[in-house]
Structure formats: structure tokens, C-alpha cells
Amino acid sequence: MSTETVAKRLIALCRHGRFEEAQHELYAKDAVSIEPEASAQGPLGNVKGLDAILEKGKRFQEAVTEMHGVEVSDPLVAGNWFSIVMTLDATMKEYGRVSMSEVCVYHVKDEKIVHEQFFFDQG
């Protein structure tokens, strides 16, 4: 599977809110997930390994009261890297309804995502 194929599959699953399925299918067992510096050490911070990424996703879902919508851009592919813009419209337990937009960058190796990193403004 090429980087572009991995990217398109991730986007298709994310556009339908099937994030955990995407992780099971497309992520390497030793993948890493990196957050912006200000939240790197928090409960949704940096983690290594698919099990930790799945747990991080579970914690995020537990913080969501209602998901109103997900928008995912088409990918920008460069070699074994791709990026997308993802915007979530959700009601969060602690914050109420919020719109979160982030740039997501992925590295693909041996047909699996081995690295994801998120960039967004905080606060």
C-alpha cells in the first residue's frame, strides 16, 4: 500500500468517525503519537505503541458528550509523509461545544503509519 493509499484510507475512515478502526488497520504496533508541547505530558499527550494510542483515543472519546461533525481535508503527500487538516465540532464535558482544527502529519513505513503529530493553537 502506497503512502497515498494509506492516506486516502485514513481519511475515508476518519470522515465517518471510525478513528479506532483506522488505528487498528493502518498503524504500526510501535507507532508514536505526538501532541503540541503544551499538552505533551497531559492525559492526551505523547504516547508510543498502538495500545497507548488506542487508550489515548478512548480517553478523548470519554471526554466528548456529543460529536456534531468531522471534516477532513484531502491529503498532501510528499514521499513517505502526508498531512491533512482535521476539524472536529464536538460538545466536550469540560468545555461545552467547541470547534477544534488541527494539522495532522503522518509518516508511513512498510505500509503502516509509524508516526503521527498534531499541530493546533491551544487556549
Score class of each variant (00 low, 15 high):
81 W>S: 03
34 I>Q: 07
89 D>K: 02
3 T>P: 11
16 H>G: 11
4 E>H: 10
16 H>V: 09
69 G>F: 00
67 M>G: 05
68 H>A: 09
116 E>D: 09
20 E>H: 03
19 F>V: 01
66 E>I: 12
24 H>M: 01
20 E>D: 11
56 K>N: 13
7 A>Y: 13
108 V>L: 10
1 M>I: 07
28 A>S: 15
32 V>G: 05
51 D>N: 08
79 G>W: 13
115 H>L: 14
21 E>I: 11
123 G>C: 04
54 L>K: 02
119 F>E: 08
97 R>L: 01
5 T>M: 04
89 D>V: 02
33 S>M: 05
23 Q>R: 09
69 G>C: 01
77 V>Y: 12
59 R>K: 11
100 M>G: 02
89 D>H: 03
14 C>F: 12
103 V>K: 01
10 L>R: 02
81 W>L: 03
90 A>G: 03
111 E>K: 03
38 A>N: 02
44 L>Q: 00
22 A>K: 06
33 S>E: 02
28 A>L: 06
7 A>R: 09
71 E>A: 10
2 S>N: 09
41 Q>S: 14
75 P>V: 02
3 T>N: 09
86 M>K: 14
12 A>P: 08
117 Q>A: 13
115 H>Q: 12
24 H>A: 01
9 R>C: 10
43 P>S: 13
35 E>D: 07
23 Q>Y: 04
58 K>P: 00
104 C>E: 15
109 K>S: 12
114 V>Y: 00
73 S>C: 14
95 Y>P: 00
103 V>E: 00
44 L>V: 00
9 R>E: 15
16 H>C: 06
22 A>V: 09
8 K>N: 15
27 Y>A: 02
111 E>Y: 01
11 I>Q: 05
26 L>Q: 04
13 L>G: 03
46 N>Y: 04
73 S>H: 13
22 A>T: 09
47 V>K: 06
50 L>E: 01
79 G>R: 12
120 F>V: 05
41 Q>M: 06
8 K>E: 14
47 V>G: 08
12 A>H: 14
90 A>K: 02
109 K>V: 11
74 D>Y: 12
20 E>T: 09
18 R>Q: 15
61 Q>A: 13
53 I>M: 09
35 E>I: 05
33 S>N: 05
9 R>D: 11
56 K>T: 06
60 F>K: 07
55 E>Q: 13
46 N>I: 07
53 I>R: 04
88 L>R: 04
118 F>V: 10
104 C>R: 12
80 N>Q: 08
16 H>I: 05
23 Q>K: 10
94 E>Q: 15
84 I>K: 00
3 T>L: 10
86 M>G: 08
87 T>V: 06
100 M>K: 08
99 S>K: 11
7 A>V: 11
82 F>V: 06
48 K>R: 13
60 F>E: 15
115 H>C: 07
25 E>K: 12
49 G>Q: 03
30 D>L: 06
4 E>M: 12
15 R>C: 11
74 D>K: 14
57 G>C: 04
50 L>H: 01
43 P>G: 14
1 M>D: 09
